[in-house]
Amino acid sequence: MNVLVTGGAGFIASHIVDQLIEDGHHVHILDNLSTGKTSNINPQASFYQADILDEQLSQLFEAIHPEIVIHHAAQIDVQTSLKQPLLDAKINILGTIAILEQCRNHGVRKLIYASSAAVYGTPEYLGVDERHSLKPLSFYGISKHTPEHYIEAFSSLFGLDYTILRYANVYGIRQDPKGEGGVVSIFVDKLLQKQQPLIFGDGDQTRDFIYVKDIVRANMAALTHGSRGIYNISWNVQTTVVELLQLMCELCDTPYSPKFESPRAGDILHSRLDNTAAKQYLGWEPVYTLRQGLQETCDYYHAAFTVQK
């Protein structure tokens, strides 16, 4: 298939690109490199350095004629959304609408959209399933949820097929610890630098961590399954931040010695996403335990850190 991946130089989407190419698809990457890295770009993919809001987007779609678009280009940081809500909305909402318009105008068959657990807000129950109410706490959660309505409307009005994947807390190789980094990449960076990891709150808050390779497998499944559906992509297990850091210290052979600070605005206390629907309709389920995923991640960064030294 001819596939366009937006944000394909970023953490998650670059892994998706690699798998698509390994599976024999023709892959095109659209990324403005604001957070993506050229080192993540697979040389077998066609790369276009452009923004999803660029005027030239129509010409790019005309040249590529993708059958499927996997949309990961986004502003992904909760704290940035709180400080710059206009920027957050422009990229995540208007940017997705721009992609949808090109999908309609150029005969794209299907859109796969990377959404987030942030759309749910404070859980009313655990595990959170796709029928849970949507009350996002942050502007980021709002800006990831709003495009879901546009996607559904474009599908109803113009026949565009779609699959929406709501990710739990994704971690793994290529995640950048700076700026928009997730807690795992931030912790491993601190541990390798022999610095004290920082925990916001008391560390008893829980998250549902999912390894990036399992995210890739969900996107591969969505190429042919999950038509017009919304699915949680998660490990479906709660882990406290303290437990996470303790395990990482064990794997990195580093003493456990965190620094605690006040909780951050927009952060929920507990999260676990029910992945039953994804198992049933996508034929997908996670295969990596937290220990297995963290082991690969820590080994990767330790090797890279050793080379840098």
Rank of each mutant, 00 (worst) to 15 (best):
S156F: 08
R109T: 14
I64N: 07
A117D: 13
Q195R: 11
I173G: 01
Q308H: 03
R104D: 06
I29D: 09
E250H: 12
E130Q: 08
R217G: 02
L100R: 02
H26I: 14
R272I: 10
A168F: 07
E55A: 13
E250N: 04
L165V: 11
L33T: 08
T276H: 13
E152A: 14
A63W: 03
V5S: 07
K110N: 07
Y256G: 06
G7W: 03
A218C: 09
R174W: 15
L111W: 00
G121H: 09
L157I: 15
E261V: 15
H132S: 14
F47L: 15
N105K: 13
K259C: 06
Y301D: 10
V108R: 02
G10N: 04
L192I: 11
G24C: 10
T224R: 04
Y113P: 02
V119A: 07
H132C: 13
T146F: 15
F139A: 04
V3G: 07
A221H: 09
Y256P: 05
G179P: 00
Q49W: 01
A153L: 12
Q102P: 00
T239M: 08
Q75H: 06
A73R: 02
H225M: 13
D253F: 03
V17I: 07
I230R: 10
G95M: 05
Q75G: 05
G181T: 08
A218W: 06
Y231L: 04
D202A: 05
A74G: 07
S271Q: 14
K144D: 11
G283D: 11
H72W: 15
A98M: 01
A50Y: 03
T163Q: 07
N275A: 12
E243N: 11
I233R: 02
Y167D: 09
N40E: 10
Q44Y: 11
I99W: 04
V108A: 05
R207D: 10
E22S: 09
N219V: 06
R217P: 00
H132T: 06
E261I: 13
S58M: 05
V237Y: 04
A50V: 13
L100Q: 06
A73N: 07
G266A: 09
K90T: 15
E55V: 10
F187M: 10
E62Q: 14
Q75V: 07
C103F: 10
T80Q: 09
D204E: 14
V17G: 02
G293T: 12
D161Y: 04
L245H: 05
Y256W: 07
F11T: 08
Q295G: 01
R109V: 11
G127S: 11
P197K: 03
H145Q: 13
D204H: 10
Y300F: 15
D214Y: 01
E67D: 14
T206P: 10
N275P: 02
A63E: 15
Q102A: 13
I41M: 11
Q56W: 01
T6Q: 06
S271N: 12
H25C: 06
D88Y: 01
A222W: 08
G179N: 14
A98L: 07
N236E: 15
G283V: 14
P263R: 04
L251P: 06
I142P: 00
G159R: 05
Y231S: 00
R264L: 15
Q79A: 12
T276E: 15
I29G: 03
D23C: 07
A277D: 12
G107C: 05
L282G: 01
R166Y: 03
I91D: 01
M1N: 12
T240W: 01
N236P: 03
I93Q: 05
F47S: 05
A50F: 03
A13Y: 05
T96P: 03
V69K: 02
